[in-house]
């Protein structure tokens, strides 16, 4: 415990505002979080429409839950996807850079110990996991948040491979080439959507966590 405090830089310590409530999420986290909501929403729903043009599996997404119309919907969906990619990339890069530079990732997400994850997961499933202190993430949260950041990075890198398989062929090669990168891109999306289902459900079940992401505390 004491070593953790010793590790933290002065700026990393929870800020005490005039209202004396602890700031759980600094402003940059809240701003990048909500911009990411918009970017992810557009990327995922337009991506589903693009997927429908040449499905990888024996299903397509209902057009009503996608964006981009006209013709088969592909031109519009591509326009949305390649516009929102800038929002996602710039906002995501800002978030990851600040997460590393401020020490927030290290402080909040590490360490992730398998035994802790098993303990907290079983506690969560039996309804015994406490959310009393929102400023400390339990092991399941740490795993999910670190995992979704990794999935985001993979989604962007595989997306770059699909967008530019000649100019960025070295990146595409990491994923096993163009066709394989399409599958990686799909599963990165599926991981993010799976995360969102849990994330949004829990935000609704623990409303003060939603308040913290809006007001900071």
């Amino acid at each position: 415990m004491s070593s953790e405090i010793a590790d933290a830089k002065p700026t990393d310590l929870p800020k005490v505002s005039s209202g004396s409530a602890v700031v759980i999420h600094p402003r940059w986290v809240r701003i990048t979080h909500w911009i990411n909501v918009i970017a992810m929403f557009v990327m995922i729903t337009s991506g589903w429409r693009i997927y429908n043009a040449s499905p990888l599996f024996a299903f397509t997404f209902p057009p009503a839950i996608t964006i981009g119309d006209a013709l088969d919907g592909l031109p519009g969906a591509l326009l949305w996807h390649f516009a929102a990619m800038w929002l996602l990339a710039v906002n995501g890069a800002t978030y990851v850079a600040l997460g590393i530079l401020t020490g927030r990732f290290r402080r909040k997400l590490l360490p992730i110990r398998p035994m802790d994850v098993i303990r907290d997961l079983s506690a969560a499933l039996t309804g015994k996991l406490s959310h009393d202190d929102l400023s400390v993430y339990n092991a399941v949260q740490r795993l999910l948040y670190a995992g979704v950041i990794a999935a985001g990075v993979v989604a962007v890198a595989s997306g770059v491979s699909i967008w530019k398989p000649v100019q960025f062929q070295e990146v595409a090669a990491v994923f096993g080439g163009y066709d394989a990168a399409r599958f990686v891109h799909f599963f990165a999306m599926a991981t993010i959507v799976g995360f969102l289902l849990i994330h949004i459900t829990l935000a609704i079940l623990v409303p003060k966590s939603l308040r913290a992401m809006i007001l900071g505390r």
């Binding site: 729903t45 964006i67 119309d69 031109p75 519009g76 326009l79």
Partner: peptide
């Protein structure tokens, strides 16, 4: 012609 129907925000509207 493309402009008329290209980008309708199906999901958002829904």
């Amino acid at each position: 012609l493309f402009l008329r129907g290209a980008t309708s925000l199906g999901a958002i509207t829904l």
